[in-house]
Amino acid sequence: MQAAKPASQLTSGQWLLTGLAVTYLGFLFILPALVVFTTAFSDGIPAFITALQSRAFLQATRLTLIVTAIAIPINTLFGLCAAWVIARNQFRGRTLLMSLVDLPFSVSPVVAGLMLVLLYSDRVGWFSPVLTALGVKIIFALPGIVLATLFVTLPFVAREVIPVLEELGSEPEEAARILGATPGQIFRRVILPHIRWGLLYGILLTNARALGEFGAVAVVSGSILGRTATLPIFVEQSYQNYQSVAAFSAAVVLAGLAVLTLIGKAILERYYLHKLPTH
């Protein structure tokens, strides 16, 4: 890795280039982020706090947290299994499997939602007879929102864990196995300590996307405020209804979480770079 040129040695042309980059990011990222905060507090802090105490907002927050709490463990388990299958085995179709795991990134969230509607809608879905018979509602209800969130966050853990698992190699696993460790012991004592930062990184990204997913959830949720609206949908609905303080207050909460995510990412990236024993 090469060292960056210290600021004191930059030429004016290089400063110009730096200025261009920062200005671009300023207009694209920083100004919009600032406007969220100023608008949320435009009617003063009490208005902001009142907005966050509305029933609709609290319901949306609760729903978002429930969905995220379900999605993270499921996709973590899947991500670990998929990463292990891909990193530890040579088989025909391995590349195909990798592309398949990445596929949700290339599918428009709206199309993902549409697919779920075609499967589970109680009007036109494939499974509508079964669902009606069982009296289970998926679309326009919590299970649909969970499914949509699972779909869009499916690749994150696997993608982050595959490279660290490949880097570990299969020899330490074989060594542990020869020494008599059970599969569970091997996972806990050999694999997990090595992949933990990559795994945590993947979970962080899963978390951010699960909290913020809009398109796929909007399709399957029905966007009923107070019932099936998650936080991002609450933001959109409030905004369309000209309740700008409510919209921006919720946006501030989500943006705050995004900032925490970025800080977490930066910290984890440092651990990635300095792979020293951490005890």
Binding site: E171, P172, E174, A175, A176, P193, H194
Partner: peptide, 13 residues
């Protein structure tokens, strides 16, 4: 059996 690998396969952590 005891097995020794070419690249040691020590547990780095």
């Amino acid at each position: 059996i005891g097995f020794v690998f070419q690249h040691y396969a020590l547990f780095k952590h």
